[in-house]
Design a protein around this nucleic acid. Structure first.
Length: 566
DNA sequence: CGTCCTTTGAAGTGC
DNA sequence: GCACTTCAAAGGACG
């Protein structure tokens, strides 16, 4: 949870983290200090978010059912006029505006706060903490943060402007809308994403455009998504960011009109869209069972996205286009590095987004708890339970208290369990630090090469295990900026063979998530190596020059991965 | 078809 | 309060 008490004053205080030098105990202390710094930085980001919208206190989590309709109507009208002026009706969304809250820091730059190269425009960089445009229209409810001064327009735009629904697929949480496969012909995995300003905007496939109703189709008199009853229209026009949150829980009440066979992008959830043909299709399972499953999924309220998830949603298409890779694991590694190299103010943007997501989520689902979603991966749990049961049954000769601890022991004693899994800003750098002490103690003084602009990269970069594994210096991986501004790609984004047993323990100690959720205590690959066991023979160091392009980086990463596999 | 991978962060549980 | 776990997204890979 964000630290509500922070004042954000320290935001700029500890921008720079202590880089690795790995000179023994003293350095270890320094790294501990760096951890604290990193923690402070992240906390300050959260605090900044909290401070910037000071209204978002716990008290404000309560819904405010009576917004100022008049001002919203005026704002909406102004906004629509601005849209028409700006784009002549052909509003172009940004590929980077994945965050569905239509963040428009400056109406003079309605298209995108980002430049074609992905950098924020100056206006966007100034980043007022969400000058939310009031996208709702009269008569539609909106959750307003009443404690926020009206002049800040800081109402939470849970109502997505219908115009936007067809303009930016990214506005929707629907993975389909986000999927690169739905990109326009201009998007070619081979050709990459055009860097021209217009095509840099996230494209909409022609098919998708054809499917999407006319932008004015939502206007009164044409009820695209009538309500079965008893549900606030606000949910219909819910900000698309919450569509995934809303749709699963509320979509049973959302009944498309017969004319509208295409679900509203803001309403379609992954659950719903997965059944395009309905249950009547031949070869499908029992309709009743399918209906039950569908109901289950619809009643499922997902967790709100955190800052990094929001960042990933925005940046993933960009990375996919640049690197021509669709494998999410690889992309996520890149995004993780980029996240760490992201400027503080840029990260703050996502922390703020995430905070508002949580706020909105709590307003929509006041009784929801993350615990509700626990056990979602039932099969895993069943497996674990089955193992425990089998263990208990198999130990009729041995007391259960002797056996069960054995099941737990690997997790408790496995050295990697400390590290990666907590995955907090507190522990991960420490882990990396520890590893680098071991493996990089004599590395080149790469820390001096660390860009001040990317202070956290070396310390917290998830590529650190790659450094461990490959024994290249940390200056050669992870989101560092070359002198000419080009982002240096990690030498080894992927450090282990795919789905290889023991891979996580042997190859990516220290950073990669042990995916505790996926490993039962008895089957965990972490049981194999212990803290005292000798590490696997390190692969030869990779002395690979920095790639000249993102694609080159990926090719390099794959090459290294193959090398590591061999 | 279900799960894993991979990332960070939030929130939960358990001690 | 700490350590650990689970789940958010994504889509290819794999059993």
């Amino acid at each position: 949870m964000p630290q509500l008490s922070g004042d954000g004053d320290d935001l700029g205080a500890s921008d720079e983290l202590i880089a690795f030098k790995d000179e023994g105990e003293q350095e270890e202390k320094r790294n501990v200090s760096a951890e604290r710094d990193l923690d402070d930085v992240k906390s300050s980001l959260v605090n900044e978010s909290e401070t910037n919208s000071s209204s978002d206190s716990e008290a404000d989590r309560r819904p405010k059912p009576h917004p100022d309709v008049e001002s919203r109507a005026r704002s909406s009208q102004l906004f629509e006029e601005a849209l028409r002026r700006q784009d002549g009706g052909l509003f172009q969304p940004s590929p980077y505006m994945g965050y569905p809250f239509f963040m428009i820091p400056d109406l003079g730059n309605l298209c995108s706060p980002y430049l074609a190269n992905g950098a924020l425009t100056p206006s966007a960089r100034t980043y007022l903490p969400f000058q939310w445009p009031l996208l709702d229209v009269p008569g539609r409810a909106v959750i307003r943060d009443s404690a926020t001064p009206t002049h800040l327009s800081n109402s939470v735009p849970v109502v997505q402007h219908p115009h936007m629904t067809h303009l930016s697929p990214l506005l929707s949480y629907s993975p389909e809308a986000f999927s690169p496969q739905r990109a326009s012909p201009g998007f070619s995995p081979d050709a990459g994403m055009s860097r021209t300003p217009h095509t840099a905007c996230y494209p909409v496939s022609p098919g998708g455009m054809a499917q999407i109703p006319h932008p004015l189709g939502w206007l009164p008199g044409q009820p695209m998504y009538p309500i079965a009853g008893g549900f606030s229209p606000a949910a219909l026009a819910m900000n698309a960011s919450m569509s995934s949150l809303v749709s699963r829980s509320f979509s049973p009440r959302l009944v498309p009109t017969p004319q509208s066979s295409i679900p509203h992008p803001a309403i379609v959830s992954t659950a719903v869209k997965q059944e395009p043909g309905g249950s009547s299709q031949p070869g499908k399972p029992d309709p009743d069972m399918q209906q039950d499953k569908e109901d289950d999924r619809r009643s499922y309220v997902k967790k709100p996205l955190n800052a990094f998830m929001l960042y990933m949603r925005e940046e993933r298409p960009k990375v996919v286009a640049q690197c021509k890779v669709k494998e999410s694991a690889t992309i996520n590694q890149i995004l993780g590095q980029r996240w760490h190299s992201l400027k503080k103010e840029d990260q703050a943007k996502y922390y703020d987004m995430a905070r508002k997501e949580r706020l909105l989520h709590s307003e929509l689902h006041p009784n929801w708890s993350a615990r509700d979603n626990y056990g979602k991966k039932k099969k895993r749990k069943r497996k674990c339970d089955a193992q425990l049961e089998a263990a208990a049954a198999a130990t009729t000769s041995a007391p259960a208290e002797d056996f069960l601890p054995q099941l737990k022991r690997p997790r408790e004693e496995t050295p990697l369990m400390h590290a990666p899994h907590t995955q907090t800003a507190h522990t991960r750098p420490h882990t990396v630090s520890h590893l680098t002490h071991t493996h990089l103690s004599q590395a080149s003084p790469a820390s001096s090469l660390d860009s001040p602009a990317t202070p956290t990269t070396a310390l917290a970069s998830p590529a650190a295990p790659a450094a461990t594994h490959t024994e290249h210096t940390h200056s050669s991986y992870g989101g560092h900026m070359s002198p000419d501004g080009e982002q240096l790609q990690p030498l080894s984004l992927t450090t282990k063979p795919h789905r290889t047993p023991l891979s996580r323990s042997t190859v990516t100690p220290g950073s990669s998530t042990p995916s505790s959720s996926s490993d039962t205590p008895t089957s965990s690959p972490y049981t194999a190596p212990s803290r005292g066991s000798p590490p696997p023979p390190p692969p030869p160091p990779f002395l690979v020059p920095p790639p000249t392009s993102a694609h080159g980086a990926l090719m390099q990463a794959f090459s290294l991965r193959r090398t590591n596999q061999l």
